[in-house]
């Protein structure tokens, strides 16, 4: 059925959080990319995109890490990450990082234009729609700031989710507001972060949805962690897990089976 010539040659950027905390997201991404007619490689030399160092002002470390990413992800048609913020880092910020370094700019430009956030890649590049996937529940989608504002991802995950059987999408109030994660922000300014995530959670709960999905694990860990601390029962999953039919996995911070 699938013509090997039209298959897209995709490198998966796993992201450090998914690798460590929730590998099921990467397996979901593999399943989806496979279904969307892609040949997938997971470059072995990857660790992280360097965003933590970048946002902390450690430009030198960031550059070192970015060089490693650029090397590891050479030669693929596309680089796809199940995260708007990691994809955004590579797509938009690597160029800033090396703006005075002509020797590497060509490679940086080549990498950044090939780098995508997962749902927008599936929707915009692959024209993919989930078929025969079920998730019979009400769900609200949280836009991560980098997906929404940096990668212009808003409608794509919603379009994909609307093709899931039984799923009812409910918009939360002020869905475009930040959840208060912000990488090390949530550690350094935990009280402010707490106030922000509480505002976010209040709006999510008001939507009446049973499940929360988003495209970035950072936001999800923050929101799920606060939901648990508050004793709320909302289930939290990465959007890829739902789209790949893995919605019956225990949600973030739930009892494992």
């Amino acid at each position: 059925m699938t013509d090997p010539d039209t298959r897209k040659n995709v490198a998966l950027f796993v992201t450090c959080l998914v690798d460590l905390n929730r590998p099921s997201v990467a397996f979901a991404a593999l399943r989806l990319l496979e279904a969307a007619n892609c040949t997938i490689v997971v470059p072995e030399m990857q660790t992280c995109c360097g965003q933590i160092a970048y946002n902390s002002g450690d430009k030198k470390s960031t550059k070192d890490i970015a060089r490693a990413v650029i090397r590891a992800f050479q030669g693929f048609d596309y680089v796809v990450a199940p995260s708007g913020s990691c994809a955004g880092m590579i797509r938009h910020h690597y160029a800033e990082l090396f703006e005075d370094d002509d020797t590497i700019m060509v490679e940086v430009a080549a990498l950044s234009e090939r780098t995508y956030e997962l749902t927008s890649f599936l929707h915009d590049v692959c024209g993919y729609h989930p078929e025969g996937i079920k998730y019979p529940a009400t769900l609200t989608y949280h836009d991560s700031c980098s997906s929404l504002r940096e990668m212009k991802v808003r409608d794509q995950p919603r379009a994909l989710l609307s093709a899931v059987d039984g799923l009812e999408l409910r918009e939360a109030e002020d869905a475009a507001a930040c959840c208060g994660f912000g990488g090390t922000f949530c550690l350094k300014y935990s009280e402010i972060s707490e106030s922000m995530v509480d505002t976010k959670i209040d709006n999510l709960l008001k939507s009446g949805a049973e499940t929360l999905a988003a495209g970035d694990l950072g936001c999800l860990m923050n929101i799920a962690g606060r939901l648990k601390r508050r004793g709320e029962r909302m289930k939290v999953l990465h959007v890829a897990e739902i789209l790949a039919g893995m919605g019956d996995e225990p949600g973030l911070g739930e009892e494992s089976r």
């Binding site: 929730r22 860990m221 799920a224 962690g225 606060r226 601390r229 939290v236 494992s256």
Partner: peptide, 9 residues
């Protein structure tokens, strides 16, 4: 201090 940490898989 303000939230639980969702344990890895």
């Amino acid at each position: 201090d303000v939230r639980d940490f969702p344990a890895p898989q």
